[in-house]
């Protein structure tokens, strides 16, 4: 399967073609490069959109069956087109700005939030040698790229001019910053074991999935990832029963869709990161690598869904306690343990 093994070459070939095209049209060859970049961005965006549609459908179906109901059933076979219908509805809905809103901030917020998730998606290794952008510090990049999302959520909370939104935004900022710490710390053990920050090399180093060496780090990472994506039991920023919808209370139409997109993309990124760093990424027998990648990511995503539809929500202060008093020390202990293990073994 050459197209999977050598997509970088495919991209190069395409770029070359575009450069030729530009030259042929009497333009500088760089224009072809730019065109190629734009096309890449759009194709990634399309990937995002399709991915989120699949995830939303999967979640609604799984949630439905977990709750003794069917989930979407009306549009298309077993409701497969429901997500498409919803998307169309969101796109065509009038997007209005509340009178109280800080217009500029209000409008920009969803894109900032979305961009954070989108950027993180760039560095995920789908298969051996297959990743949109190869970075030798992929772990740091992914963690860093996801962070500006907090800013976007704060912007949304502030810009909506709504007290519920503001509360949601503030909660979210506190939560995401707090959980960034154990999240990063839990990955340090992996980095120490794999002796690299390059996701590809980290996967290559996993002859045995790292989760067996680092079970504590895995649990810490899992909890922190659920908190980072603002999902139940840590969906405090949205907290439907308290804050109606938290920071996106005032959003509708396409802007709301971007928040939605961001949430699912982020969930995918964290699931993929867990699959890559703890479960061996694309490594696996028989099936091609990308299959294993998606199977493992899917398993992690199922965990996200499962948690959401089972657990009640923590309170804001309990969440902080969990993050700072339990997860962070655990992550530190894990680092010390890993270091000692590496020293003596």
């Amino acid at each position: 399967m050459t197209y999977i093994a050598e997509p970088a070459q495919l991209v190069l070939w395409l770029r070359g073609g575009l450069q030729q095209l530009a030259v042929w049209a009497g333009l500088p060859a760089v224009w072809g490069d730019w065109l190629g970049t734009v096309m890449e961005i759009f194709s990634l965006f399309a990937f995002c959109a399709v991915l989120v549609m699949v995830l939303v459908y999967a979640e609604r179906k799984i949630a439905g069956h977990m709750q003794d109901r069917l989930g979407p059933m009306r549009v298309g076979w077993h409701g497969v087109l429901q997500v498409v219908a919803d998307t169309i509805k969101l796109i065509f809905k009038e997007s209005e700005v509340p009178a109280q809103a800080d217009r500029c901030v209000y409008r920009a917020a969803p894109y900032v939030v979305f961009l954070a998730g989108f950027l993180a998606l760039l560095a995920l290794p789908l298969d051996k040698g297959v990743l949109p952008v190869h970075l030798n510090v992929g772990v740091i990049y992914i963690l860093a790229a996801g962070t500006p999302g907090v800013v976007g959520i704060l912007m949304a909370g502030w810009g909506s001019g709504n007290k519920y939104s503001l509360l949601g935004g503030l909660r979210s900022a506190a939560q995401m910053i707090s959980y960034e710490v154990p999240l990063v710390l839990s990955l340090l053990g992996i980095v120490m074991l794999g002796r690299s920050l390059d996701l590809q090399q980290l996967v290559a180093a996993q002859t045995v999935p790292f989760v067996l060496y680092q079970p504590v780090a895995f649990i810490v990472f899992l909890i922190a990832a659920v908190a980072e994506t603002n999902r139940n039991p840590f969906d405090i920023p949205e907290a439907e029963s308290e804050l109606t919808a938290g920071f996106h209370t005032e959003y509708g139409g396409i802007r709301f869709a971007y928040f939605f997109l961001a949430e699912y993309v982020k969930m995918f990124v964290f699931s993929a990161l867990a699959a890559t760093l703890f479960l061996g990424g694309w490594r696996g027998p028989v099936l091609p690598g990308w299959c294993w990648f998606f199977i493992k990511t899917g398993g992690m995503l199922f965990l996200f869904f499962w948690f959401r539809w089972t657990f009640p929500r923590l309170r804001a202060d309990q969440l902080m306690n969990l993050g700072w008093k339990i997860l962070t020390p655990l992550a530190f202990l894990n680092i010390i343990g890993t270091a000692l293990m590496l020293m003596w073994l």
């Binding site: 069956h65 977990m66 003794d68 109901r69 069917l70 059933m73 499962w306 539809w309």
Partner: peptide
């Protein structure tokens, strides 16, 4: 919840 996932839903459409 996992147990429920594999049971037939009681929904009447």
């Amino acid at each position: 919840t996992l147990g429920q996932l594999f049971r037939k839903p009681c929904t009447v459409q």
